[in-house]
Simulated assay, not measured.
Amino acid sequence: MKVLRFFLFPFAILYDFVTKIRNLFFDVGVFKETSFKTPIIVVGNLSVGGTGKTPQIEYLIRLLQNRYKTAVLSRGYKRLTKGFVLVRDIHKAIDVGDEPLQYFKKFKAISVAVDANRVAGVAKLINEQNAEVVLLDDAFQHRKVKGSFNILLTKFNDLFVDDFLLPTGNLRESKTGAKRADVILVTKCPNDLDQSSKAKVLKKLKKFDKEVFFTTISYGNKVLGSKEFSTTDIANYEVLLITGIANPKPFLEFLSNLNVNFKHLEFADHHHFSEKEINDIKTNFDDLPSNKLLLTTEKDYVRLHDKLSDLCYLPIETLFLNDSKNKFDTLINSHLKEKV
């Protein structure tokens, strides 16, 4: 794979040229950016997938939902519907995408919608749902909506500054795109991040002159789904693990640290499971010895729970490190106080 990416280097140069021209046209006004009086908080990345956008959106929902009429807009990746859809109880992941459905099911006080046309989608949420703040999921490159506050995510062990443009690397656009961010969140850090490692990251990001925060993934203390029990008790089960996310490695490491004996069936990110695949999963699960557990991620659970009756999941949350939570929360609240 690395050899193939090396030979695709000329296409990466072409891709870089195209994305830079596109961004220049937005910067000078050839392409229109639409601004709204309502604050628009953009969460996104420069890389392809797996930086922790979903738990970060959920963090913002928890922070804001009791103070502002909050809405989330996503494009609804891999959905089969078209146009603007306001997520309702009747919808499944195939209708609106797994992440929007997850937001809707967890947070009943907010509005969740999908629309590939971000401008039209934001306008509908403001005008029809009376949204006071809109969270744009995975929209850092979708510049037709001008965010009032832009949050850029980058993984600790795969910083955008160390990467290269597609298809040679995983960047969607040049590293200079980070200049549009208001803050940079370094995600999926080790829980015991030391000052030396933190300093190395800050040195690499210094040239962008942005406030930098360090976060990690915090796994829930309870397994949920068809049964509910303490996370530490997963080790008592023979586990069949199903994942369809961009980067399952942290989850695998977490289970290994709990001394869990598991078999892993890995699928592509946002994978929609066929009937044959579901039957294969059931067969693999039936083949396990007694006291077995069918486990998946929270995002995969949204797509699978109506097909696998024994399914459980482990929820995750974003956790800010180095006592920086209050500083980040104050930054967001101060921004909204000026706008709302």
Rank of each mutant, 00 (worst) to 15 (best):
I245E: 00
D163N: 13
L185G: 00
F36L: 07
P289Y: 10
V201F: 03
G121I: 02
D115F: 02
V72P: 02
I234M: 06
S230K: 13
G177P: 03
F214Q: 02
D115Q: 14
G44N: 13
Y15C: 13
V223H: 14
T318K: 01
T51C: 00
L265E: 05
N257H: 15
V3N: 07
E211T: 13
K108H: 15
L193R: 00
A181H: 02
L136D: 08
H335A: 06
E128F: 10
T215G: 04
D269M: 01
G44P: 11
K307W: 08
F104S: 01
G49V: 04
T297L: 03
D163K: 10
H272K: 05
V119T: 12
S218C: 09
L205Y: 02
T216M: 03
T70N: 07
V96R: 00
V114R: 01
L294H: 03
V72I: 10
F160A: 01
L265N: 01
F285D: 13
N291R: 14
T330W: 07
D287I: 05
N257I: 02
D310T: 10
I281H: 03
Y219Q: 03
S290F: 15
K263L: 06
K204S: 09
T232E: 14
L314F: 09
L224N: 05
L153W: 01
K227C: 14
D16L: 07
E173Y: 14
K307I: 08
L8C: 11
L258F: 04
N157I: 07
D163W: 03
K2A: 06
L73H: 04
N66E: 12
K179M: 10
K69A: 12
F36M: 13
R75K: 11
F26T: 07
L252K: 12
V112K: 02
P167V: 09
F164V: 15
T38D: 10
V260Q: 03
K188T: 00
K207G: 11
F31L: 10
H305Q: 11
N191K: 13
S334A: 08
D286F: 11
V133H: 11
I13S: 12
K32V: 09
K282V: 05
Y219M: 02
H335S: 13
N333P: 09
A113D: 04
Y77K: 15
P39R: 15
P315S: 07
R118H: 04
S148R: 06
L193N: 11
Y313R: 03
F36W: 09
K146H: 07
K198E: 11
F251I: 05
D27C: 13
L288M: 08
E211H: 06
E58T: 02
T330F: 15
V114T: 11
I13C: 08
V161K: 07
F229N: 14
T51K: 01
L185Y: 00
N259W: 04
F7C: 09
V96G: 00
E58G: 00
F31S: 13
F107W: 03
S256Q: 07
F208E: 04
V212Q: 01
Y68W: 08
K327G: 14
S334V: 09
I94N: 04
